[in-house]
Every structure is written in C-alpha cells, then in structure tokens.
C-alpha cells in the first residue's frame, strides 16, 4: 500500500505553474531596459587623406555651386547672402538646369557643390545645410528614377538601377578645409 502510493507520487509532474511568474519577471526586466531606438543619420563618405595638397583644378565658375557658412551661421551662396529655406530649390535648379541657363551647370555630371564652413559654425547649422544639399540630390534622383523606371527612388532599388541613376547625376560635394574664425 505504501509502495503504491510512492510510485504514484513519482508519476506526479513538477509544478510548472511558477514558470510563468519567473518568465514574467524576466520579461518585465527586459521591457524596462529596452530602448528600441534605431540609429539614424545622414551617411557621408569622406575623401581619403593625402599628405600632398590637392591639385588645383580649373573649373568653370558656372559649374560650381559654392556654399559658405560663417561663424554666425549665415549662408553665402554663390557670393550672395541666402536663406537656408531656399537652398534646396536653388541647388536642384543648379544641378539639373532645366532651362539651360548659362550661369548654371552645363550638365549634372559636371556640377560640383562646394561646401565650406568655419570652425565656429554650429554643428546644427552644418547638418541643416548638408541635409538640404543631400535632399536636393535625393529629389533629383527620385525624379530621374520616376522618369526612367516609374518607381520612387529608395535604398532597396536594384544596384544596376542605382548605378545608372548615379552615373547620370553623381553627387559631388566637396568640402574645403574650414576657415579659422570665431571658434570659442
């Protein structure tokens, strides 16, 4: 009789009821510590460093879109004061030159955007300017992509498409060494 009851006890399963509680505890811990923040930002590619000073290239003035940002965060676009809100449109018009004006770029392939800032420029303004110039190219790529393939431009596009578009409108953004005014 006693033997039988012991065998019956052995058949009993482990009580798994508390398992859920343990799992809940862990779950809550991870819920609290989780920060689902995706890292986002503007991706850029720097030019490789060379010890020799770069060769001075002779460029036609019409092919250069110079943007200067001074230590007071003011913009000088092609020699005149400008506002950041109009930068994107002006850059787009300069690169694409739809009306074939002779003071804008001869061809998107020849267009060069030159960005120069000061050591005292705030990072906020620098990123804002960079963002506008990048947006100009992104919008042009998008328009080109719509025209050629009828789909909006995105990073998931087949590499061949992307290459074809970037060959037509390459992004040339040259950054000059900053001037040394107004750093704290």
């Amino acid at each position: 009789m006693a033997k039988k009851s012991s065998r019956e006890r052995m058949k009993n399963e482990i009580n798994a009821g508390s398992m859920a509680d343990i799992a809940f505890l862990l779950l809550i811990f991870f819920l609290v510590t989780t920060t689902i923040d995706v890292d986002k930002g503007i991706t850029v590619k720097l030019p490789p460093w060379s010890d020799e000073p770069p060769e001075i290239q002779k460029l036609k003035t019409r092919n250069v879109f110079s943007v200067l940002v001074n230590a007071q965060d003011q913009l000088l676009v092609r020699g005149e004061l400008a506002d950041i809100d109009e930068l994107r449109e002006r850059a787009k018009e300069f690169i694409a030159n739809p009306q074939r004006r002779d003071d804008l770029s001869t061809d998107p392939k020849n267009a060069i955007i030159s960005l120069k800032n000061d050591r005292g420029t705030s990072y906020k303004q620098y990123v804002a300017v960079y963002n506008e110039l990048k947006a100009a190219y992104d919008e042009l790529w998008d328009e080109e992509c719509q025209r050629l393939y009828g789909i909006p431009y995105s990073d998931d596009l087949p590499t061949a498409y992307k290459r074809a578009i970037k060959e037509k409108i390459p992004m040339v953004l040259s950054e000059a060494e900053p001037t040394n005014f107004g750093e704290e």
Binding site: V38, D39, K40, G41, I42, T43, Y123, K124, V127, A128, N131, K134, A135, D138, D155
Partner: peptide, 10 residues
C-alpha cells in the same frame, strides 16, 4: 543630436 530629413538607417 540635430534634426534632419534625409536620414538613413544604420
């Protein structure tokens, strides 16, 4: 970090 629109995911 500053704000921008042309963001890419890392």
């Amino acid at each position: 970090v500053p704000q921008a629109t042309q963001l890419q995911k890392l």
